[in-house]
C-alpha cells in the first residue's frame, strides 16, 4: 500500500487550541478531520503537509441542531450522523438524499461534513447541496469568526476561502416555510464520485415559485450553483415546462470538462436532465406530495 511521507502531528483540544496551532505552523499545516480526503492524497503523495493538526478531539464541533430558523451543523459532524439526523431530514430532504450517495457507509462513519467541504473537490456532493440551500459557513480565525455564503466558500478547484490560520466550524442552513428539496446524482457505480449531480430547493406560494436554489456538482457550475436558472424560476408557476426550461438554462451556464466519468456534452446534458428532475422532486415535496 502507498504510505504518506513523514509528517508532524499535533492534537487540538479546542477551537482556540487549533487556531493557536494553525498560527504557529502557518501554511505548512493541514487540518486533519476525518482524513478520508486528506489521507488518501497524502498516501499518493499528492499533498505533503509538514504538520497535521488533528481536530477529532474537538467533540463540541460535532452537532446538528435547530437554532431559531436555522439548522446548524458542526464542521466535525460525520456524514453518517447527518444521514441519521431526523431533524436534518425533516427540514432538508436534500441532505439525506445527498448523504445516501456520498462515498460508502464505512467512509461516512468517519468522514466529516467540514472535511468534505474544505477538500473542495469540484465533484463534491455537499457543496452542491449547501449551495442549493443557500447556506452559510462560519469560519474562525485569529481575529474572531466570520460568516461566508456557501456560494462564496469555494475559491476554485480544491481551494476555499478558509485561510491558513482559519478553521471552518459550522454550516448554517436557513429554514423557510413552504420549501421542498431533493438531490439526484448519476455515478458510474455506488460509492463513485458523481458524473454529474444536482440539488434543488424551491419555495412555493401556492403554485408560484417564490424562490429557488439549484446546486450542481461535477459539471463546472460557477460556485456549484445555477444562479441564472434560479432567476428564471423566481415568480413563475411550477409547471413541468418551467422546470424543464430551468434545466436547460442551468446546462447552458455550466462548463463541464471531459474525463473518464464522461464527455463534456453528456455532463451538460446531465446538468439539464438532473436539474429538471430534482426540481420536480423539490416541488412535489414542497407540496407535500412526496416524502
Amino acid at each position: 500500500m502507498q504510505v504518506p511521507a513523514q509528517v508532524e502531528y499535533e492534537r487540538a483540544g479546542s477551537v482556540e487550541h487549533a487556531l493557536t496551532l494553525l498560527a504557529r505552523y502557518g501554511p505548512a499545516a493541514r487540518v486533519l478531520a476525518g482524513g478520508h480526503s486528506l489521507i488518501p492524497m497524502m498516501k499518493l503523495r499528492l499533498v505533503q503537509p509538514e504538520v497535521l493538526i488533528d481536530i477529532n478531539g474537538i467533540t463540541d464541533l460535532c452537532y446538528i441542531n435547530l437554532t431559531g430558523a436555522q439548522l446548524r451543523i458542526g464542521a466535525l459532524t460525520r456524514h453518517a450522523q447527518l444521514l441519521e439526523s431526523s431533524v436534518a431530514g425533516e427540514h432538508f430532504a436534500i441532505l439525506h438524499d445527498a448523504e445516501r450517495v456520498i462515498a460508502d457507509p464505512i467512509v461516512r462513519n468517519w468522514g466529516t461534513v467540514g472535511g468534505s467541504l474544505c477538500q473542495a473537490d469540484p465533484s463534491e456532493d455537499l457543496s452542491a447541496a449547501f449551495a442549493a440551500m443557500k447556506g452559510t459557513m462560519i469560519i474562525h480565525g485569529p481575529d474572531g469568526s466570520r460568516e461566508v455564503s456557501a456560494r462564496e466558500f469555494h475559491a476554485g478547484p480544491y481551494e476555499t476561502v478558509v485561510g491558513p490560520s482559519e478553521l471552518l466550524t459550522e454550516i448554517r442552513l436557513p429554514i423557510r416555510p413552504g420549501g421542498g428539496s431533493g438531490y439526484r446524482k448519476v455515478s458510474r457505480r455506488a460509492g463513485d464520485w458523481p458524473v454529474g449531480a444536482a440539488g434543488a430547493a424551491v419555495w412555493l406560494d401556492g403554485d408560484v415559485i417564490t424562490d429557488a436554489g439549484i446546486g450542481l456538482t461535477a459539471v463546472g457550475a460557477t460556485h456549484f450553483a445555477a444562479a441564472e436558472a434560479e432567476d428564471f424560476l423566481r415568480g413563475r408557476t411550477a409547471t413541468p415546462q418551467t422546470l424543464a426550461r430551468a434545466g436547460e438554462i442551468a446546462a447552458e451556464n455550466c462548463r463541464p470538462v471531459s474525463d473518464q466519468r464522461g464527455p463534456a456534452d453528456y455532463k451538460r446534458h446531465l446538468a439539464c436532465e438532473l436539474t429538471t428532475r430534482v426540481l420536480g422532486v423539490a416541488v412535489a415535496r414542497a407540496r407535500g406530495l412526496m416524502a
Binding site: V186, S187, R188, V195, R261, G262, P263, Y266, K267, H269
Partner: peptide, 14 residues
C-alpha cells in the same frame, strides 16, 4: 457507463 450508453443513443459512441 451512463455516459457511454447515452452517447450510443446519440449515435456518437465513445
Amino acid at each position: 457507463t451512463p455516459a457511454n450508453v447515452w452517447r450510443a443513443i446519440q449515435g456518437r459512441p465513445v
